[in-house]
Write a protein that binds this DNA or RNA. Structure first.
Lengths: 218, 218
DNA sequence: GAAGATACGGAGGCAGCCTCCGCTTAACAA
DNA sequence: TTGTTAAGCGGAGGCTGCCTCCGTATCTTC
């Protein structure tokens, strides 16, 4: 068993976790990250164990199920996105902050092709990982959303869950050619839809100084 | 080989396809539809063969890969959605027609939990199925979109591909509690974002209209 | 250094994937 | 009808990956 702080707050002594166990766990995580990123969610766990230089038994002891392994691997990644939201909370324009978070999310996803597929698979099966990351990101994005809604810049009836869902879904379609610019465009549309329209934004298309809401990519 | 009209237009004789082959193919499709719907994309092909009452070899002869089987199963389903778009082209309000198509899509998806996961998996791997359904639905939705854009009711820089991608993505997150109403809400937001804002919709909430400059990707 | 807890690793059982090939059956010609 | 033959059938078998189990090795603690 891996030591967990606070797990056993009654009197029993608690052994320090074994050094080799800690080391091996780390190695497996490292290997899993690489293999999942490259090979997607179907990657062989035995291959991961081999790459980590441990026996398959060791891998299973640390991560009894495939999903457990996902969870551990992605936890850090999710944290990163979450922290970004924290930073953006200080931006001046709350709507823009939201937009920027979403855009960063796209880039983030872009660097982890196989991993996203794996994540998506986990989400499907309602695993622990989903619960964690969804909640974590929901909370992160919620603060951005609240701020924007409180400022009256954005409709207030869309929940963080909704938004996250939509975002995730859009990204899921990645790995088609041009998916990235497509998602970016979609997000712009989406944020436009969320925004409580300020007067400046309301021009019929004929009017000339229309701000270029979206730059076409292709 | 299954007979395909026009496959062999030079002089050779062409045998009629064997009745048992046709029958078995149909049985396998039937079984696959049921099994995939229930069990998702991971379902055992052997289970499908058994349910269809044929040998595993027969299944593989007709559908050499898992994806081939998906393709055949979903083709009809895709056709249905596609036809719906055709009908909606005659609605009065083009934006509303689009909205309704999307909403029907959600319902459609809702009845086929496992199947959508299977489809999504296929999309991931860039299979034939994806090419077919994406193109088919793109064309279908394109007509709706064009009509709305031509009427000046909708921004014109969003392609059918974009829209389909976003829609599919949103639906992909299904099987969480409440996903359906969430997706419906998201779609409303989305369609609102697409709509070229009519003056009536414009309430000035903020004295100073924020200039929502879209930041380019860093 | 000894004792005992903890972790290691891989053999082995199981399940699903896919191929291969001898047997069966339907289509066609006579 | 009947015979011929291409087309189709099915499942045994080889392979790979999943996961468990347990004898052995290693670490922590005293």
């Amino acid at each position: 068993m891996i030591y967990i702080a606070g797990m056993d707050d009654h009197t029993d002594q608690i052994r320090k976790p074994r050094a080799d166990a800690v080391r091996n766990r780390e190695r497996v995580l490292e290997a899993a990250k690489a293999v999942f990123s490259a090979g997607g969610p179907e990657a062989s766990l035995e291959a991961i164990a081999k790459r980590a230089g441990v026996g398959i038994g060791t891998l299973y002891r640390h991560f009894p199920t495939r999903e457990d392994l996902f969870e551990a691997v992605y936890r850090r990644e999710v944290e990163q996105l979450s922290e970004l939201a924290e930073q953006l909370k200080n931006a001046k324009d709350p709507v823009d902050a939201l937009r920027r978070w979403l855009r960063s999310g796209v880039e983030f996803v872009a660097t982890k092709k196989g991993m996203v597929a794996a994540l998506a698979l986990a989400v499907q099966s309602g695993s622990e990982l989903h619960a964690f990351s969804f909640e974590r990101l929901t909370k992160a994005i919620g603060s951005l959303l609240d701020r924007a809604a409180a400022a009256g810049a954005m409709r207030a009836d869309i929940s963080p869950e909704d938004l996250l869902r939509a975002f995730f879904g859009m990204c899921y379609m990645h790995d088609q050619p041009g998916w990235q610019s497509s998602v970016l465009r979609m997000l712009d549309v989406f944020v436009d839809g969320l925004r409580v329209q300020p007067a400046a934004n309301v021009k019929t298309r004929a009017a000339k100084p229309v701000k270029p809401a979206v730059k076409r990519k292709r």
